[in-house]
């Protein structure tokens, strides 16, 4: 599903002395099949933006009637027009999975099975048969890398931190959403736990979650995995670029107080030493280009 955003504005506590404009005229498009990254500081508007994508924050209807500066707000996810009141938000949410920060905090059921099945039952039209639920839960647990037979009857609260998080993700993707939005899915995990989450996202991207939108602070992960990246700053979108172009602007990103990947930092330092490396900022490409230089070859 293609996500189209045009002139999106959002104000918290509108018409009160505490009003804060969280989004200012945000416009860009996320293509079907992308592994799309969103970066920016806490409070830059990125969380507000992603909550729009499955209708948890609605476009206020007054904006539609009275567009700002004459530009009509547009927000579409596939066939769904999110500015319309008639949109079937239930169907939208079935198709757009949302994994919040620290998703393990939303676990509630007595067993892993019941927790994962929760979303599936909610979104099923009518009452699903036992076999249907079971196969959906089995499949979801499988793809997040947990063994169905071992964990299904275990209380989710008895699992380790990394396992809890994977159960929570299974509980979101069990409905086969085409778009999966994740807000810092690896936050707070140990390094191996982080690697596992990234591998899991790639498995999902290769199967039913065709479009992945991930909010992250880890620039190395962004550089390694994303097709394109949107940079949020103070409610606006500064850049929408693939990593290989985005990190050409490393100095500017650093001046915005954002981080850049290690490879980009090294490229900047090497530039100071008179060595120019033109890579796409993935570790492998950086190594390839540097090693090629070392062997007396030239870098293209």
């Amino acid at each position: 599903m293609r996500i189209v955003v045009n002139h999106l504005n959002y104000i918290y506590n509108d018409r009160s002395p505490f009003a804060v404009q969280a989004l200012k005229d945000v416009s860009f498009t996320i293509e079907h099949g992308e592994f799309f990254g969103i970066i920016g500081h806490t409070g830059s508007g990125k969380s507000t933006f992603v909550q729009h994508l499955n209708g948890l924050i609605r476009v206020p209807s007054s904006l539609k009637r009275k567009p700002i500066k004459g530009d009509m707000t547009e927000l579409r996810v596939g066939e769904f027009d999110l500015t319309s009141k008639k949109t079937d938000f239930r169907a939208l949410r079935r198709n757009v999975g949302m994994v919040f920060q620290y998703p393990e905090n939303q676990l509630f059921a007595e067993t892993v099975f019941e927790d994962v099945a929760f979303g599936y039952r909610n979104f099923f039209d009518g009452k699903p048969e036992k076999g249907q639920v079971e196969s959906a839960v089995r499949e979801a647990l499988g793809i997040v890398g947990l063994d169905y037979e071992t964990v299904k009857n275990v209380s989710p609260f008895d699992l380790s931190g990394g396992q809890k998080r994977r159960v929570a993700i299974a509980g979101v993707i069990v409905t086969h959403p085409e778009v999966l939005v994740l807000d810092e899915p690896a936050a707070g995990l140990d390094p191996l736990g982080k690697q596992e989450i990234m591998r899991l996202l790639h498995r999902l991207h290769g199967s039913w979650c065709k479009t992945i939108v991930v909010v992250s602070h880890d620039m190395d992960e962004i550089a390694e995995n994303c097709t394109r990246v949107a940079v949020f700053a103070e409610g606006t979108v500064k850049y929408v670029l693939p990593p290989r172009e985005l990190f050409h602007h490393s100095e500017e990103l650093l001046s915005l107080g954002l981080d850049v990947p290690l490879t980009a930092k090294l490229c900047l330092e090497l530039e100071k030493q008179g060595v120019h490396i033109d890579c796409d900022y993935t570790t492998e490409d950086f190594l390839r280009k540097v090693l090629a230089l070392g062997k007396g070859g030239t870098v293209c």
Partner: peptide, 26 residues
């Protein structure tokens, strides 16, 4: 938490009393 459960299809503000009470659990 309400947002997270709504994203999982929980209907927190519709249905009869019994349904609403059950919806509060998650």
């Amino acid at each position: 938490i309400m947002n997270a459960q709504k994203a999982r299809g929980a209907e927190l503000d519709s249905g009869g009393l019994a349904k609403r009470i059950r919806a509060v659990v998650p």
